[in-house]
Computed example of a mutant assay.
Amino acid sequence: MLKKLAILAVLSAGPVAGQDKSFTLAAPDALTKTGFLKHLLPRFSLKTSIRVTLTDGGADAAFGPQGTPVFRKGDAIWHFAGADNPNIVAFEEWLLSDVGKRTIEAFAPEGDALFSADLAMAATVQTATLSGDVALGERVSLKRCGRCHVVNDSNRMNAIGSSPSFALMRNFPDWQERFETFFLLKPHPAFTQVHGVTDPFPDTQPSPIVPIEVTLNEIEAITAYVGSIAPADLGAPLQTQ
């Protein structure tokens, strides 16, 4: 049943019915052990609805010493190479785009960016354009997120006081990144499923509460909705003498 739902989610997210929007990817242990790909791949899937599956061998594409330079770690430059496949081409183009570069450099497990997309030491990164359905985003936010967060005045009395409101989080400099990838940020992974992206909960470790189930299209809509609301007025900054 879960497999059927995943297939339907991918088909409904893409513009061409019946197209297999996925490919397999190989990467050396030196890269996978950093946790970087767990950060990178879901974000690409969020933007494109193309699912990337890591595999040890016989992959459609690979990170390594051959191909197009895409990012670096210190002085070591990582390359990407793959078959002539529209999904693989889309991934390479995304890695080289401003949004992809921003995503690469957002991976900072110890507080500092571990990888850089600036191969020439002069990359320019821009904020991604919000293109989701704002009205859908409001409905999904109230239904899926409103049990914890104040989404707007309509659920102000039903949320959990310790959870930040959407208007408050709208003040965060990285608010867009947070909402686009909320399912990766604690505590959400313990109870959130994204169709076609996240793996099902293990039978031995089910969700501790009723799971939140969303699609990539709904996440895009939520982010667009948050972009449409005014940040909470936090008052003037404190003046120090």
Rank of each mutant, 00 (worst) to 15 (best):
L2W: 12
K3P: 02
I7Y: 07
I7R: 08
A9N: 11
A9K: 02
V10M: 02
A17M: 06
Q19W: 06
D20A: 05
K21V: 07
F23R: 04
F23M: 00
L25K: 05
P28R: 03
P28N: 11
P28T: 09
L31Y: 04
F36E: 08
K38G: 10
P42D: 11
P42Q: 03
R43C: 04
L54Y: 03
D56W: 01
D60G: 12
A62W: 08
K73E: 15
D75H: 03
A76G: 02
A76Y: 06
I77Y: 00
I77R: 00
A83D: 15
N85L: 03
V89W: 01
F91Q: 13
E92M: 04
E93L: 01
E93S: 10
W94D: 05
L96F: 04
S97C: 07
R102H: 10
T103S: 13
T103H: 08
E105D: 12
D112R: 15
S116A: 11
D118Y: 13
L119R: 12
V125M: 06
G132F: 11
R139E: 05
V140R: 02
S141Q: 10
L142R: 14
C145S: 08
V150N: 10
D153E: 14
N155D: 04
N158V: 07
I160Q: 03
R170I: 15
E180F: 07
F183S: 07
P187H: 10
A190G: 13
T192Y: 09
P200H: 10
P202Q: 08
V210N: 00
P211L: 01
I212D: 03
E213P: 08
V214K: 02
N217Q: 08
E220V: 04
I222R: 05
A232K: 10
L234A: 09
Q241E: 07
